[in-house]
Design a binder for these strands. Structure first.
Lengths: 208, 208
DNA sequence: GCGGAAGCGGAAGTACGGTTCCACTTGTTT
DNA sequence: AAACAAGTGGAACCGTACTTCCGCTTCCGC
């Protein structure tokens, strides 16, 4: 983001797009260990050009992750239009998962499994949290899911799901994981089955 | 494993233990990016000595992971002695999770988040699968959990749980995750609540 | 306690990959 | 179409961290 979009020369803008596109593809395929000159080659530009547009590798990778968070927010907004509260929540989760199914780089990022701190996506994260929280509130208010379900649980779930995607590739496996989790999240229609009480500390976590 | 235990000199055996112990501690604290000379220093030996005992870094790290799998198997064997089938399963999962709570290196390994292939732990994995499968069978036979729960689900769960441990450190968070999942896995006492059907492909995965 | 095999230490070798730098090219403005 | 700023390419640089190598030390059987 070192360069103002408006003063940018036409070829620079084009190259920038190429770099992002190549980055997205290779980051998805190879993960964060993708090499800068690979991206450059694939984009049909020199390494110097990549560094002109993104000051560091981390900046480039962060841009990829940021886009995914934007996408999540869009998906959530679409899901919000679904009338049934539980279906809205389920759709949001399933569509989000589907969106990153082939993106192993993002999956790793989501799992927090590399040292990158992903600074610079706070805004996108906050925007996402807002919509998701609305959807969750509607579902809990309607008694469609566990009363104590919250945004952090959503994040935790997505983290678990992406780790299944990465660790056990294959469409069916992660869908199974989603199933198992949603089965636990969705309250039975009649009401009050208590969660299996195993762990004394489970409810003590700090909120938000 | 390059050296026969029996012909080993006393000091060599002692050094080997020190290296493993230092490796375990640092691998747990810093993850796989721990440096070889750090381990050497911490163990009070030279780097050359580390390489005499473990031909590569990967070999050393694999040894750490292998130990954890052995531990899992021991935990499962203990859990098997519990009379109630559901309690046995729950105990196994909870104790296993607790065992690796502080081991971020293993958590990453479990998530499959580094390129290491962890070859050389097939035996331990198979031994673990055997006990776990016994415990699961007993629980399904007793109608205590979902009929379709299997070893792969257990692996998937552990994978998800460790990713929560790593990504959202804090005792309470992962225990919450365990709760949510077990809530879904444990069938209600009365019987037949169907899983929420979201995903058409979910049941099609290949068995074992 | 001697001899030699086993083991040790750590400096140097090496590979890898992100980042810099600058001579050269291209777009844009007048 | 001239002139200059903006942009480009990629060889070279540099830091990091794994691994090797070999002269020295320690153990242990005789």
């Amino acid at each position: 983001m070192a360069i103002d979009q408006r003063t940018q020369r036409a070829d620079a803008r084009r190259n920038r797009e190429r770099i992002i596109s190549a980055g997205r593809e290779l980051f998805a395929r190879e993960g964060p260990q993708v090499q800068m000159d690979e991206i450059a080659t694939h984009a049909g530009v020199g390494i110097g050009t990549v560094y002109r547009h993104f000051p560091t590798k981390e900046a480039l990778l962060t841009a990829m992750v940021r886009d995914r968070f934007r996408e999540f927010a869009e998906i959530a907004l679409l899901a919000e239009e679904i009338a049934d509260p539980r279906a809205a929540l389920q759709s949001m989760i399933l569509r989000s998962a589907e969106a990153v199914e082939g993106d192993s780089g993002f999956q790793l990022a989501m799992m927090g499994s590399n040292e990158l701190e992903w600074e610079g996506i706070e805004e996108e994260k906050a925007a996402l949290a807002e919509v998701v929280t609305r959807i969750i509130s509607r579902a809990t208010a309607a008694g469609a899911i566990r009363k104590d379900f919250c945004f952090e649980d959503f994040a935790m779930m997505m983290c678990g799901i992406t780790s299944t995607m990465y660790y056990q590739p294959g469409n069916a496996n992660w869908r199974r994981h989603v199933d198992l989790i949603l089965y636990g999240v969705c309250a039975p229609d009649d009401g009050q089955r208590p969660a299996p009480r195993l762990s004394s500390g489970a409810r003590q976590r700090q909120s938000v």
